[in-house]
Each structure stands twice: as structure tokens, then as C-alpha cells.
Amino acid sequence: MSVTHERAASEIPSGGRFRRGSRELWALCAALGLIAGLAAGWLGYPRLTSVVLTQPIRFSHSAHAKQDVACRTCHFEGPDGTFNGFPDIGVCASCHAEPTGGRSEDEKEADKLVVEYVRGKKAVPWLSLARQPDHVLFDHGPHLRFGCPACHPDMSHQDYPELRQNRVSGYRNWTMSMERCQTCHRQQSASVDCVSCHR
């Protein structure tokens, strides 16, 4: 370092092309660059790579809870213990057979469901919040006893949890990290072998 300084000092004639004031300007530029770089790295990158996703239907959990619709009406285990995940359109249709014609936001959404999906018997392309990459083999069955909020956003507290997806990796903000899985598996003395969770 010192060598370069000495060389720089000896080679640059004072009051020559590089005036004294420019050193401060250079430092300022460098500082500005540093701030810009840090900002880009800390704030810009996440914003650039993440995209906010919206559900096809703005589904309100609380509105359904108020109507005394039990969680199990839509999210249930099959007769053989398999977990259904999202309900299929038949479940929605059992209540939303006809449009309400109402004016409120929720009613408009419900009508959208009826018009676009229920009548066409089309499955609603719900976006899963805690989507895992395809190489993860997750079976709901043995995890149900820990309660949904152990992994999913707690729907009793938030109605429309924010959903962001990384453009590059495809991971979502609710995607579980392997570390979290492992921590819990260790606590429960469950297997942490690759074959137990990866396919």
C-alpha cells in the first residue's frame, strides 16, 4: 500500500492535471458510489428479484370464519388420510352456486368466483404460500398434529398475507428453508436423512 502511495505521490506533479480539490471530489464520488452500491445490494436487489403475487380470487378467511365455516370444510383429510390441500371447485360451488349481486368488495369477489370458475367447472389456480421446490417431498399427513400455523401464515391473524416470489429461484416468502425443517426434525427426533424429504 505504502509503495503505491509513494509512487503516486512522486508521479503526480502537484498543481498539475490533478488539482488538490479533486481528491475531495474523488472521495465524495467514492462515498456516493459506496452508498449507492450498498443501497442497490441491500434494498435494490431484493426488490428487483421479488415479484408480488396476487391470488386469482381475493379470498377472505375471516369472512368465512364469521359465517361459521369450519376450516375442515375446505381443508380436509381424505378418507384414507391424504390431505387435500386446496379445495376443488365443487367445495366452493356447494355454497357459491349463484352470484350474490352484492356491492361490497367481498361479494364482488364471490361473484367473480361464481362467474369465472364455478360456472365453467374450472379449478381456481390458487397460489400456495409455502410452495416448496419440486425436489422436496412433503407429506401433510404426519405434520398435521403440529397445527397449520407452524409452517403456514396464521390465517386467524391475517386475511391476505403478502405473497412474494423470487424471480430467479422461484422461492416464495413463505417457502420453508431446509434449516427450519431440520431444526424441527431434530427437536422431534424425526429423521434428517436426505431420502426422508428429498425426491
Binding site: C29, A30, G33, I35, A36, G37, A40, G41
Partner: peptide, 13 residues
């Protein structure tokens, strides 16, 4: 200078 700062900032982020 700006480039170096940017690079350093990105590297530190």
C-alpha cells in the same frame, strides 16, 4: 471512484 465505491458497496452487501 464511483465505480470502486459501487463495487465495494455491492461487495459489502
Amino acid at each position: 471512484g464511483i465505480s470502486a465505491g459501487l463495487a465495494a458497496g455491492l461487495a459489502l452487501s
